[in-house]
Nucleic acid binder design. Structure first.
Length: 424
RNA sequence: GUGGGCGUAGCUCAGUUGGCAGAGCUCCGGAUUGUGAUUCCGGCGGUCGUGGGUUCAAGCCCCAUCGUCCACCCCA
């Protein structure tokens, strides 16, 4: 036997028993976003490397060490998308969808980051993103959060996920705060943990979530981001909270919440859970008013969020929230004995599919003894098994066996379809 | 990139101080001719992740390597 080739590390196959959960989740999301007037957009998995360098931020970990980047045959540097927002902006702007108008868009698909895999984190992972453009007021921030809450409600996750909210102000306010924070922390540099010392030069805001105790005690006296937030950002944040409260959305304000990607400003939020180990965030987003312009478009306000499908699937499984209707099973199993019956069973199965297109009708293929076929019928968990042999063909009938009761009765061939249709 | 756990049949896993490679499930066949889930009998299925080393003898001990899981970092 030839040596087997395995899937790439961190890139998983979604096997049949899992794919039904994915379909259920995707369908639920598609229905919810549609009900809020969002339309799907699809864009390529590969983009010019510069799109992500400029969009995500040159000094972020994603760009510095996590991208799958390679040269095209003509020498151009291409990258497998590590996230969706930059591509979404590029696609929408390229098509002129962002000019003097508002857009409500969503997308879904694989993203790629070169990281060590662990629970809920993979090198190829899947996100569903929801983005809005052309609206700078807090109402649209609220709409997106309310939409996500409705999705949790539909999935049975409300109460299992917690909404964390923060405002990180305007870029200029954040820069001023960063400078103050770095000034302060530099005095205590030797008391900070190793990672935080490094982040002082790269991503100082991240030090705020350090898990190191010594670092946290240094942070107690540090300047607070809140004090640097200007009037505009503050009232935007308050308006958002007013709308959320009126809609019964509960949340906690987490002043330490800063997003990893450079493009965020004003509102940031995360939905977190305690059921998934270290990967607590199942959905995260915020406002990114500067991104469109940064990518060469006209200044356009925007807000959006992305959720991790793997994490949501894991969460649904962990909490046993997959409805029975989402699971795959057959309704009718068709077995036959003999050549004539085989042909007739095809015709019967097709007639049934014609009349009841939503039923799952599994017609046995591949030969095997009658006993064997009945075993397959049992495994399929079909409610009814149709049995056709030479005797039945001769008499123009079909045996219909109710697999749960074991009861079996014969029906004229021309009545079987109507009978099953009434029973299922 | 760093740290720790685990790699034995398709799946879940036993395997004693180093002494003939095992179970359950699945799959296939049989227990009266054309009837499934329970039961009984039989069968298929393995380079013990891979490569070295120690030993009369290695699934077990040592080294390396690959894979996987969890955590750090970072993030959905």
């Amino acid at each position: 036997m030839a040596r087997k080739i395995q899937a790439i590390r961190g890139m998983n196959d979604i096997l049949p028993d899992q794919s039904s959960v994915w379909l259920y989740l995707e369908k639920t999301v598609a229905d919810v976003v549609k009900s809020y007037g969002y339309q799907q957009i699809r864009f390529p998995i590969v983009e010019n490397t510069d799109l992500f360098k400029r969009g995500v931020g040159e000094t972020t970990d994603i760009v510095e060490k996590e991208m799958y980047t390679f040269n095209d045959r003509n020498g151009e540097s291409l990258t497998l998308r590590p996230e969706g927002t930059a591509s979404c902006v590029r696609a929408a702007d390229q098509a002129g969808l962002l000019f003097n108008q508002t857009q409500r868009l969503w997308y879904m698909g694989p993203m790629f980051r070169y990281e060590r895999p662990q629970k809920g984190r993979y090198r190829q992972f899947h996100q569903i993103g929801v983005e809005s453009f052309g609206m700078g007021t807090a109402d649209i921030d609220a709409e997106l959060i309310i939409l996500s809450a409705r999705l949790w409600q539909k999935l049975g996750l409300l109460g299992q996920v917690e909404l964390q909210l923060n405002t990180i102000g305007l870029a200029s306010e954040r820069e001023a705060y960063k400078a103050a924070l770095v000034d302060y922390l530099t005095q205590f540099k030797d008391q900070l943990d190793e990672d935080s010392q490094r982040r002082l030069g790269t991503n100082p805001l991240r030090i705020l979530d350090s898990k190191d105790e010594a670092t946290q005690s240094v942070l107690k006296e540090a300047p607070s981001l809140e004090d640097f937030i200007g009037e505009e950002s503050q009232s935007h944040f308050e308006r958002l909270q007013t709308i959320l409260k009126a809609n019964g959305i509960s949340y906690v304000i987490n002043r330490r919440l800063v997003r990893g990607l450079d493009y965020y400003g004003k509102t940031v939020f995360e939905w977190v859970t305690s059921h998934l180990g270290a990967q607590a965030t199942v959905c995260a987003g915020g406002r990114y008013d500067g991104l469109v312009e940064q990518l060469g478009g006209k200044p356009t306000p925007a807000v959006g969020f992305a959720m991790g499908i793997e994490r949501l699937v894991l969460l649904l499984e962990t909490l046993d929230l997959i409805p029975q209707s989402a699971k795959f099973s057959a309704d009718v199993f068709v077995v036959s004995i003999g050549d004539d019956a085989e042909v007739a069973s095809f015709v019967l199965a097709e007639k049934l599919r014609e009349v009841s297109p939503n039923l799952v009708i599994l017609r046995h293929c591949g030969g095997g003894s009658f006993k064997n076929q009945m075993k397959k019928a049992d495994k399929s968990e079909a409610r009814f098994t149709l049995i056709l042999g030479q005797d039945e063909i001769d008499q123009g009938i079909c045996q219909v066996k109710d697999m749960s009761t074991g009861e079996q009765q014969s029906h004229p061939l021309h009545d079987v379809v109507a009978y099953l249709n009434s029973k299922l």
